[in-house]
């Protein structure tokens, strides 16, 4: 037993250098939409408040743990109730919570307001890929993980993850214009999935048979990566989402390209929407 302990300790020690190498992603990734901006701010605010409470409350506790020890000759007092202080420490948390709830309410209302979008994309989740339909521009495509399978591997044949964006890359990215309010109509075809792109402040289940909406607006051009957020079977870990925000001109070019591609493929590639009851 000692030996195994030593082995484990050895492993633990040998993994310490990792700490030095870590690129310390210890916070929410940089926000890039009005909602994720607010989320970031809310999280920071609440984190600091909680930390402050923690320091105060456990400052008191650990002071007591060190000072009121029997070994230091502490003699137990006998009090066991004090209505005044009990009322105080019930009311103060109330106030603190109100202070947190106010800005959170603003964000919830903003987040839920998908009205007046500049464009609408219908997102349908499948086991295990996404389909995007640009309702205004007539673009429609599937989007599948593009990391090669042999990099992922299996229990028989271990993979070697070498791609920089291993598991977070797709064959067809979702391209959107910067600065436009984009409404998403999210649904699923088989089981529940989750369309989750943290940097854009969206995490919305796609529920088979129902349309749920959400929206985002990319503040600046960039590539934003996310993953399916709700367990959906064995490939749940392998259905990423990549959103590319481009300038209006680049977006227009992209739409044209897509349309040309679609027209070429039109004749033979007719993927039928399997009906949602067939299961």
């Amino acid at each position: 037993m000692k030996k195994t302990l030593r082995q484990i300790a050895g492993t633990a020690l040998s993994s310490l250098p990792i700490l030095a190498l870590a690129n310390y992603d210890v916070n929410i990734p940089a926000p890039h939409s009005p909602i994720s901006d607010q989320i970031y701010g809310l999280h920071m605010e609440i984190l600091w408040v909680c930390l402050a409470i923690f320091v105060v409350v456990f400052g008191v506790m650990f002071y007591s743990v060190f000072a009121h020890r029997k070994s230091k000759g502490a003699v137990a007092a006998h009090f066991h109730e004090n209505t005044t202080i009990e009322i105080i420490w019930t009311l103060i948390p109330f106030l603190i919570l109100g202070f947190m709830a106010w800005p959170a309410t603003q964000t919830v209302l903003a987040m839920k307001d998908a009205s007046n979008p500049d464009m609408t994309i219908k997102v349908t989740a499948y086991q295990w890929m996404w389909q995007y339909e640009y309702l205004n521009d007539g673009v429609k495509f599937y989007s599948v993980l593009s990391t090669p399978r042999d990099q992922i591997g299996s229990t028989e044949q271990h993979g070697k993850p070498t791609n920089e964006h291993y598991l977070l890359e797709t064959d067809n990215n979702v391209v959107v214009p910067v600065g436009k309010k984009i409404r998403l109509l999210i649904t699923a075809n088989d089981v529940i999935h989750g369309w989750y792109v943290p940097q854009l402040g969206v995490n919305q289940y796609g529920i088979p048979g129902f349309i749920k909406d959400s929206w985002f607006k990319a503040n600046e051009p960039g590539v934003f990566r996310g993953q399916c957020s709700q367990i959906c079977g064995k490939e749940h870990g392998y259905m990423p989402i990549v959103v590319e925000a481009k300038s209006a001109e680049d977006y227009a070019v992209w739409v044209k390209e897509q349309k040309a591609k679609q027209a070429a493929a039109e004749s033979h590639d007719k993927v039928s929407l399997a009906d949602p009851v067939a299961r």
């Binding site: 964000t107 989750y196 957020s229």
Partner: peptide
């Protein structure tokens, strides 16, 4: 932290 709806959006699951 998770109870704050908008923050849960980014942390859920």
């Amino acid at each position: 932290v998770l109870a704050i709806t908008p923050v849960d959006i980014t942390l859920h699951n």
